[in-house]
């Protein structure tokens, strides 16, 4: 297989439940109401999700709120533990080791070296009371860098790329505008040049012109570095602009997947049809 045919990220049969489940809902998905058990109130946030991302590919995940998109992203970035499932990265032990089954320390290493995450809310991804430079250095420190000069140089380089002016690089992100905070997050995610970027609703809450800036930046970076990107959004125009392939989620399950054009032009599942036709 050439490098284009082997997935960079593979997720198999991923499940995440909040609650222990009862005899009424365990292994009986037909009894669930909207991903939730009506008897024991266990929430099945993700059910049997399998997907893969290939080298240099942008995969979009769409779905209404509560469909399990963010739960999926959190598990992929080890912010929360999966209930069960398998997770492989090509760059980690040749993609032969299930990272969910590995130690927490190994997971942290993967998180710092192989993944970059941009959250919808910058408060999640940035330390608001540390300077923008320090926020970027945090990733490099976690990766074992102990040389201040090289980290400052790399930080300046990254902040230049996301156009944060030099005068503001030592300021705290809490004094930045929303768009700037998002750009600092992107710079931070790129600090260790990870092969995979996870973007969780990165433009939600930004005004339209800033949205366009951020999206253009992502596109530029993706073209230059050939990163693989997993992109969550409920905004179909963002998906249309960035994603090569799209996955539609509802009630914790993948209900449809295919090329973005196909999904948007010829949706098959009734929910996807409703989603596409409700686009203004």
């Amino acid at each position: 297989m050439t490098q284009w045919e082997k997935p960079v990220l593979t997720l198999k049969n991923f499940n995440k439940t909040f609650g222990n489940g009862c005899s009424f809902c365990k292994d009986k998905p037909e009894n669930l109401k909207g991903g939730c058990c009506p008897k024991c109130r266990t929430i099945y946030a993700c059910r049997d999700v399998s997907l893969c991302v290939y080298c240099g590919e942008v995969v979009g995940i769409v779905g209404e709120s509560g469909s399990g998109k963010s739960t999926l992203m959190q598990a992929l970035y080890f912010d929360s533990e999966p209930t069960d499932g398998e997770y492989y990265l090509d760059a980690y032990k040749n993609g032969e080791r299930n990272i969910f089954a590995d130690s927490r320390r190994q997971q942290k290493w993967v998180r710092n070296m192989l993944l970059g995450m941009v959250y919808q809310n910058p408060v999640m991804g940035l330390k608001m009371h540390f300077s923008a430079q320090s926020n970027i250095a945090e990733k490099m420190i976690a990766a074992g860098n102990r040389d201040v000069h090289s980290m400052v140089a790399r930080g300046n380089d990254l902040l230049e790329r996301v156009s944060i002016p030099p005068a503001r690089r030592k300021d705290n992100p809490c004094n930045f505008s929303g768009g700037m905070q998002q750009r600092v997050q992107i710079a931070k995610a790129l600090a260790n040049e990870p092969p995979v970027l996870l973007l969780d609703e990165i433009t939600t809450g930004l005004d339209l012109s800033v949205q366009a800036d951020v999206l253009e930046l992502i596109q530029k970076i993706q073209r230059a570095n050939r990163n693989s990107i997993l992109l969550v959004s409920h905004d179909l125009s963002v998906i249309r602009m960035l994603a090569d392939r799209t996955v539609v989620m509802r009630n914790g399950q993948i209900i449809e997947e295919g090329l973005t054009d196909q999904i948007l032009e010829d949706p098959q599942h009734p929910y996807t049809q409703q989603l596409v036709y409700s686009l203004l």
Binding site: F130, A137, V148, V152
Partner: peptide, 17 residues
């Protein structure tokens, strides 16, 4: 987990400031 990047980050921030 032996994750002490926080302590290092504090020193880095001091150097920045």
């Amino acid at each position: 987990e032996g994750d002490y990047s926080g302590a290092w980050l504090k020193m880095f921030e001091d150097i920045m400031r």
